[in-house]
Simulated scan of single mutants.
Amino acid sequence: MSTPFKRLDLNLLKVLKVLIDVQNTRKTSELLFTSQPSISRSLQKLRVHFDDELFIRSQHGLEPTEKLLELKQTLMPIFQQLEFALEPSETFDPMKLEGTINVAINGFIANSVSAQLTHILFTRAPQVKVNIVDWGSQTYEHLTSGEIDIGINYYPLNLSKQVYQKKVATDGFILLCRKGHPLANKSLEKYQGETLALASLMVADWNDTVAFAPQALATRGIQSEIKVRSTYLHSLLTIVKESNVLFPCSQLLASSLSDEFALVEFPSLQNMPNGDIGLSISRKHRNQPKIRWLESCIEEVFKQ
């Protein structure tokens, strides 16, 4: 088996990196200030070296093969580290930044910060594309591999020391219900009615193994049970609007919703998460100028 960094020209890896980002030989030639035939020749050398087509042409451009997706996850982050190590950090200019910025965000938080974060990134790095994904079961692996640049979730998460975590804001939790719900705008302080039906948004690495709300409500003698769990936020919100299900959710999320919803007041509860929000960044990528800059942009969003 060949050893890419030993036998392969690093300039070919640079071509491969841009091809992965733009998936078009013409655009790649323009970005690298060379001819399209030259890019095609480089791609052919890469195909021979890796013994794989790497890209398959389709009506949408170049589609990656399984082999290329594997290279993207393993080889490209290493090459990117080399680029940043060889290029002084003071030369970093987000106006010249190209490619895709990948951010994973907890569904509770995404509604409130995604638009503002995207606006900042497009303003300061107009040539980038932004890919915002839900925090899922593979997010930890994608952070450590560099496939995801940065994550935003509640803090702290039970992750290995390969991931650096940093608190940037504090959220809180409330009970959301439909307008017209029997408990809308009322308090649960002395509630002794029937068992409350709850909905729960599942977030990997945070509440995928335990639902906080029933345990917390039980400390005040309030019986409840999770009637529906989902990773799809908008599905849960639709269910809440069309039923008597209550939705324990973040204050950030509630503040971004329409007036179709109401709140249920409830007393201070033990065993509920503190609501701190943090950034998650791969330690081996954290000092890259791009990641440092992205970290500062996200912190600015929460300060505003």
Rank of each mutant, 00 (worst) to 15 (best):
N111G: 04
I174S: 15
G180E: 06
G99T: 11
K179T: 07
V130T: 14
V103A: 14
Y154Q: 01
S187P: 07
S255K: 07
R292I: 13
L13A: 05
L188T: 03
M202G: 03
A199R: 10
F5M: 06
A110I: 06
N158Q: 07
A199V: 10
Q304A: 15
C249H: 03
K190T: 10
L279M: 08
K6T: 05
A169S: 10
V113R: 01
K186D: 01
T123F: 02
V163D: 12
D9H: 03
E98R: 12
A110E: 15
A197M: 11
Q80D: 09
E141T: 12
I222P: 06
A85K: 12
F173G: 15
L237R: 08
Y164T: 05
G193Y: 09
A213N: 05
I150F: 08
Q288W: 08
D134M: 14
T65F: 02
L19C: 07
S58T: 13
P267N: 14
S40N: 09
T219C: 09
T219E: 10
K167I: 15
E141N: 15
E63M: 03
S250V: 02
Q215E: 06
R47N: 01
V128G: 04
H49T: 01
E194I: 11
L32D: 14
P156M: 04
W135I: 13
R220S: 10
S160W: 11
P182D: 07
L253R: 01
L253F: 05
T209K: 12
P94G: 00
A199K: 13
T238P: 04
I120D: 05
V133A: 07
N158A: 15
L236Y: 02
K284A: 04
E53V: 14
T28C: 15
E194P: 06
S230L: 00
R41T: 05
S200L: 11
R47P: 00
R124K: 02
R178F: 14
L252H: 09
G180N: 02
L10G: 02
R41I: 07
A216R: 07
L121E: 00
F266A: 11
L32F: 05
K186N: 03
A184L: 00
P182M: 03
L31G: 02
A216M: 14
Y140T: 15
Q165T: 07
F55G: 12
T65V: 13
S268C: 06
I56D: 09
N24P: 00
K179N: 04
L196E: 05
N131A: 05
I78K: 09
D93L: 00
E90T: 15
F212D: 13
Y140R: 10
C177Q: 12
H119T: 12
L175H: 10
E30S: 08
